[in-house]
């Protein structure tokens, strides 16, 4: 119960900092608020005993903060240009929250015999079960030779998913290059 309470407090903290990031009139404070939300997510990962997930999360948060702050410092005017519509944002967020609550209740909800298991209960069977997760745990060392079960699953049993993730990263970086390329910018400068 104690861990759940801390996680709930951290989630409330994340929601508050996300709201600050949306509503802040200064770009720098918005970026810092996003960083606060990200580090709260890292703390939640650690509380749920997932260091493999918290590790990259911390790193990506630090890198993103450094790059965003560096880019903002190079701009002279840090006030945001886009007009903000508080009421519309609040309505959209409320609607999303209502939708999620309805989905949660529709597929089983708080009832432990429903489709969604209660918090902390392993989804794919426990140790004495014959579920697939226990098979992974028992057979990972002799099947893959990896002492780290997470890496054994990521790069051996479920390597196809990892290939998909790698493709997502490649496509995202290609998109970044396409936006930031110099040729298009030069042409626009010549035109104007």
């Amino acid at each position: 119960m104690g861990v759940e309470l801390v996680i709930l407090l951290l989630i409330v903290f994340m929601i508050i900092s996300a709201l600050i990031a949306v509503e802040a009139s200064d770009l720098l404070s918005a970026v810092i608020a996003i960083g606060a939300a990200g580090f709260a997510l890292c703390a939640i990962d650690l509380l749920l005993a997932a260091p493999d997930l918290a590790f990259p999360q911390v790193l990506v948060e630090i890198i993103t903060l450094v790059i965003l702050i560096r880019m903002i410092m190079t701009r002279q005017d840090t006030s945001r240009q886009t007009p903000k519509d508080t009421l519309r944002t609040a309505m959209v967020m409320l609607a999303c929250g209502m939708f999620l609550i309805v989905v949660f209740l529709a597929v089983g909800g708080m009832n432990t015999s429903g489709t969604i298991p209660s918090f902390g209960r392993p989804v794919m069977g426990s140790f004495d079960d014959t579920g697939v997760s226990s098979q992974y745990l028992f057979r990972c060392a002799q099947d893959t030779g990896a002492a780290n079960v997470v890496m054994g699953i990521l790069l051996d049993y479920r390597a196809y998913d990892t290939l998909g993730e790698a493709t997502v990263i490649v496509v995202a970086i290609l998109g970044g290059y396409a936006v930031l390329r110099r040729i298009g910018r030069k042409k626009r400068e010549v035109k104007s």
Partner: peptide
């Protein structure tokens, strides 16, 4: 040492 301890290629 990604296959021995938490870590790996991405990190």
């Amino acid at each position: 040492t990604g296959h021995l301890a938490p870590g790996g290629g991405f990190v």
